[in-house]
Design a protein around this nucleic acid. Structure first.
Lengths: 208, 208
DNA sequence: CTAACACTGTTAATTATTTCACAATTTTCT
DNA sequence: AGAAAATTGTGAAATAATTAACAGTGTTAG
């Protein structure tokens, strides 16, 4: 398989979610223009993405939803599944755990970390919270490869460094502080403030 | 001023945050390569972004932090400020309110909405929660232009429609359900699951 | 049976974004 | 003062992502 663009990977994840929903409504085939409509993109884009993963629909029938879901799974999931930790059990951390609970079978949140003694040892939506200082140990023991950071701004760097030292393979950083990781750690950063400010910018323009 | 790319707008927001932090540490000038380092991008990218907004640094001194912050503010903030509502007071909604509290003077969260009677009338980090059915009234009365949606998946569409009917100008949708809005409403969607799956995908690759 | 239609798959063109390469200029050093 | 170093600003090139255009092919309708 050729190289798949980042953007396509993101869309595949979204297609899958949309498809699962369609499937649950009893639909069994879907056209590129239907997917496109749901995702606010063009049908060509959908067809191109599917082309990249080598999926072929049926002329005038569209794509077989069940099959496509499975193929996307083969592309983006790992066979054995991956273990995820949430670092920082504030409102955001709890929101993510709760939302993710049993959503993706191949991506299990198996641990939470915080440094508040009141939280350590407790369970949040079924996930045990450990002390941040135990991260190296737990990450190794439980074979956790992905960390989601929702810690207070001013502890971001320090905790990211500890994650890297613990051998984490990928980090999703929700704090507004960019972090540095070595090349062999995949980093994705998302900053809500930026999104809000972006909306504000374009709304301002519309008003003018 | 020429057209500013979406990506540049996002980076400007991030530069500003980084710059504020530098300023608070007593720094007064900064080089493009320093900003670049913080944001994990190239110095050229920084210089080009600043070029686009017409800011000119001093050769061998770099950029004046205070000035640059102000200029970015002129570009991305609206003069009078804008009012924001959070729709859906789950963990995520609360996280956003709490985080945003007094962060951006030009973007005030002035209302929250939920349909849980236990939440209506209460304050969350100082923001009053109204009944969702009162959205049209409150959005008009308080002149709210931006809504952040953190509602349960299955109510997303319905609530988005109500927001549009209420005359909202921009929506930031954090639910995993894409929504449809007319052209005169700016829409930004962010889906955490996608980010997590993306990290998982690239981590899987690294392992292989 | 033929024509019109409705889709997919893909090459080519276009647009958006990033990076390269370097001239210009100030500062520092000798 | 002159040479070396550091840094900005930007045109041009490269890369990435999207869209257009259309050939191919079942399907439906007459």
């Amino acid at each position: 398989m050729k190289h798949i663009p980042h953007k396509t990977i993101e869309r595949l994840s979204q297609y899958r979610r949309a498809l699962l929903l369609c499937l649950s409504k009893g639909k069994d085939h879907i056209f590129s223009h239907e997917i496109a409509k749901i995702q606010h993109i063009t049908p060509v884009q959908v067809r191109r993405d599917l082309m990249l993963i080598g999926y072929t629909g049926t002329l005038r029938k569209g794509y077989k939803i069940q099959e496509l879901i499975e193929l996307i799974g083969e592309i983006i999931d790992s066979k054995e599944g991956q273990k995820v930790a949430i670092v920082g059990i504030g409102n955001l951390g709890r929101a993510i755990i709760k939302y993710f609970k049993n959503k993706r079978p191949k991506l299990a949140i198996v641990a939470a970390f915080d440094s508040d003694p009141k939280k350590i040892g407790k369970k949040f939506s079924g996930v045990t919270c450990y002390n941040i200082s135990d991260m190296p140990k737990e990450i190794k023991n439980q074979n956790i490869t992905i960390a989601i950071m929702t810690v207070p701004d001013d502890r971001t760097i320090e905790i990211a460094d500890l994650l890297v030292k613990s051998g984490i393979k990928g980090i999703l950083n929700f704090t507004p502080r960019p972090i540095n990781v070595p090349d062999n750690v995949f980093l994705e950063e998302y900053d809500m403030t930026t999104s809000i400010e972006k909306v504000a910018f374009y709304v301002k323009d519309v008003q003018a």
